[in-house]
Amino acid sequence: MRSSPGSERSVTVCSVINEGPAAASDQRSVRELAAGLQAGDHGCLEEIFRRWSSLVHTIALRALGSAHEAEEVTQLVFIAAWRSRHALVATDQALPAWLVGITRHRIADRLAERARDARRVSAVAAVAAVSDGEGPGGEPAGEDVEALVQRLVVAQTLAELPDPRRTILRLAFHEDLTHDQIAQRTGLPLGTVKSHVRRGLLQLRETLHSALAELPDDPPRAFGGGAR
């Protein structure tokens, strides 16, 4: 958790890219970002925030149903990521999965806190002798976190894919075009379209897998259960 002393501000890819005018220029690879974060490059934290804060924020917002708490959770997640950056392993998948894991932990904390508060309120209210004696459940105000994380991680991963793969997958999955129609529309050979769709699906599955595997205290359910 401690930052290592010394040359924390070494200039790496992220510091450079953030000084450039085009923030949305060529995106650094996930591995580069993870390595930069590990090295204590604050510019990488900023880039990471730019790319994944919407995912973190949206998961928290939908799970907790509170804009204010979602902002707090988002803030805590990236501060925690910075402070525990030395624990991160720089691979192609690890970074987003790791962020999602921290997010889920923070959400779990909040939900537990609510359950505690609810018990406390019932204790307060009991004095008024109007309590019906039922134990209040600290029920989450938001959606099922597990399903939510899965859906949003996939949506985010898809949105992050480089073109033409992203466009091809959107046309195939969201607009339900046939591969022939996609080939016509994009001007790419049919075989190339098919290959992109297949590899893209494998890629989505891979990211999803590692995102779900990232919560050791709470092993994910086999997500094949969510199949139609």
Binding site: L152, V154, A155, G226
Partner: peptide, 20 residues
């Protein structure tokens, strides 16, 4: 698992991520 992912990808068509 790939089928499940495909279903999630299709479900996610309307998912809008909201920046903080």
């Amino acid at each position: 698992s790939l089928r499940a992912t495909l279903a999630l990808a299709r479900d996610g068509a309307d998912e809008a991520l909201l920046a903080p």
